[in-house]
Amino acid sequence: MSRALPALAAASALALTGCAGGVSEAGATAGDVTLTVFAAASLADAFEEIGERFEVEHPGVEVRFNVAGSSSLAQQIRAGAPADVFASADEPTMDRAVEADAVSGSPRPFATNVLALVTPPDNPAGIASLQDAAAEGVDLVVCAPQVPCGAATATLAADAGLALAPVSEESSVTDVLGKVTSGEADAGLVYATDAAAAGDAVHAVRLERAGSAVNTYPIAALAHSEHRELAEAFVEFVLGAPGRQVLRDDGFGAP
């Protein structure tokens, strides 16, 4: 029994480091390749579908997604997370990955998104414009300026000459949407694609000048990818006809 001790200790140590390893270590067995794509939260549905189509065209390849706020993803990539492709919801966030020399080549724009004003389905505060949403007494929820949808919100408000007085600045667009669908907030600013995906759970208010704050989504293969060619192929696939079609169907604009 005592002879098994070092082995046991070593196994535990391995298990420990394994715990700390993070995403995408499992599944990379001989024969198939796992491509790990870090994608902005707003891309979740579109990329899921693009990934499936890519797998059909590339037998033996499995595409896995880590979907979160762009800033969090950029942070994880800078910290050395094992990712092959990064698709961000805005250019400044991608630039942070570029500055850290984490990107291979230069990022390429593949989609655009604008903001939409949403209210609960019954629109309790009678919101009909951004001006209404900015009025006193209206519980408006937006993204914090630190995240891409919040940066777009600031641009939109500046263009309209409005000082927004939100009751909450959330860390992600999904948190904003949650506060609106649950009826806690009178209105929220989310991406047009999120508003479309939410369907009847929200009432969308047309924004006069939504085009004043356009987020451009860049995509890039990552420098430390172990499957560089495949990563480049995925980027081409997103930029190509199949990717464009899925993105358009989900409400994204062309760059």
């Binding site: 969090s72 942070q75 914090a144 630190q146 939100p166 009751v167 909450s168 600045e169 959330e170």
Partner: peptide
């Protein structure tokens, strides 16, 4: 929610700063 001085407590601030 999360608003500076009203609801953004220290843990929420940590979460946002991390971005």
């Amino acid at each position: 929610g999360s608003l500076q001085g009203t609801t953004r407590t220290l843990p929420l601030q940590v979460y946002l700063e991390r971005e």
